[in-house]
């Protein structure tokens, strides 16, 4: 059964939409990630216009982050103060990101920037995660290896406007989380992702937050950043497809349940290693598309 998506203005088989939601939902449940970095390229691959894919995915991530953050809140794994600072940065960043998105779309370069962002950031994060998980796996097989320091102090910790973050046991400059929030906000708006895959390593390695509060705090601020993107894209470009988001969500909710159960069967470093391979696979696929000669060098787009 096909369903006509009123904003994307294409019809898609309902099985594909729910299947995409379920498949990506399963992986996000398995790995504990939002899955935007998989869903947005897949939607574009299935013929959804890039602008609609990015905006609609932002809307869907609002839902998956809400359902994810509730479990972390119950366990007290959300640093609300840190989350609020990251969110303030994220609001600024995502507002800039949406404006940048419109500009790039007007000059016909949005596809290129989306693709390049994916290649660069998925490449970096994937490579880091892979080496980290391989190191952990090797270390676990060679007992007695020394453990590194939890986090290092560098010039970043000498910035002014210091604030105390009790839940994270940190006393650092507010400029740092504000800047990280803004940077990830820009990427979230352009790439159609929540940005957790950049936010989480940044919180651990740049801010030095304890790993227990990292995921919950990241999800907490992602809700607001993606809600901001949803609202701004709705107003400025009318590219949020409510019907598509709702159907994806339906599949994702079910998929995530199975994913998180499957995740319990695997060890942490194995999961991270597999996730790294998945991230790198997406990076390579998008990079390959940029390098090979397109079938037709000319393409058309109708002005509505």
């Amino acid at each position: 059964m096909y369903i006509y998506l009123p904003i994307a203005e294409v019809s898609m088989h309902i099985g594909i939409i729910i299947g995409l939601g379920g498949g990506v939902g399963f992986l996000s449940g398995l790995f504990g990630v939002g899955g935007g970095f998989l869903m947005t390229p897949l939607l574009i691959f299935f013929g959804i216009p890039p602008a609609v894919a990015v905006s609609t995915e932002a809307n869907q991530i609002v839902a998956s982050s809400v359902s994810g953050v509730l479990a972390h809140m119950r366990r007290g794994n959300v640093d609300f103060k840190m989350g609020a600072i990251l969110m303030a940065g994220g609001m600024i960043g995502s507002t800039l990101g949406v404006a940048l998105f419109s500009f790039l779309r007007d000059i016909g370069q949005i596809d290129l920037v989306i693709q390049l962002s994916y290649v660069v950031f998925l490449g970096i994060i994937g490579a880091l995660m892979l080496t980290e998980s391989l190191r952990t796996i090797i270390r676990s097989r060679t007992p007695g290896a020394a453990r590194g320091k939890l986090h290092q102090h560098n010039w970043l910790h000498g910035l002014p406007l210091k604030m105390r973050f009790r839940r994270s046991k940190l006393y650092i400059s507010a400029i740092l989380p504000l800047g990280i929030g803004a940077f990830v906000g820009i990427l979230a708006a352009i790439m159609g992702v929540g940005g957790g895959f950049i936010m989480v390593p940044a919180m651990i390695y740049l801010l030095g937050m304890p790993t227990s509060v990292v995921v919950g705090t990241s999800l907490f601020q992602i809700i607001f950043v993606t809600a901001n993107v949803t609202l701004l894209q709705s107003i400025q470009t009318q590219t949020v497809d409510f019907l598509l988001a709702g159907l994806l969500l339906f599949g994702a909710v079910v998929g995530a349940q199975f994913g998180s159960r499957a995740g319990a069967l695997l060890r942490g470093e194995q999961l991270r290693g597999l996730l790294a391979l998945l991230v790198l696979a997406v990076c390579v696929k998008i990079g390959y598309d940029l390098v090979i000669r397109p079938e037709d060098l000319l393409s058309v787009e109708l002005v509505r």
Partner: peptide
């Protein structure tokens, strides 16, 4: 604008 707010409320509620 109302559409955007509606989409957000729907997402929060279903999440």
């Amino acid at each position: 604008a109302l559409y955007g707010i509606f989409a957000i409320v729907f997402a929060v509620a279903s999440g």
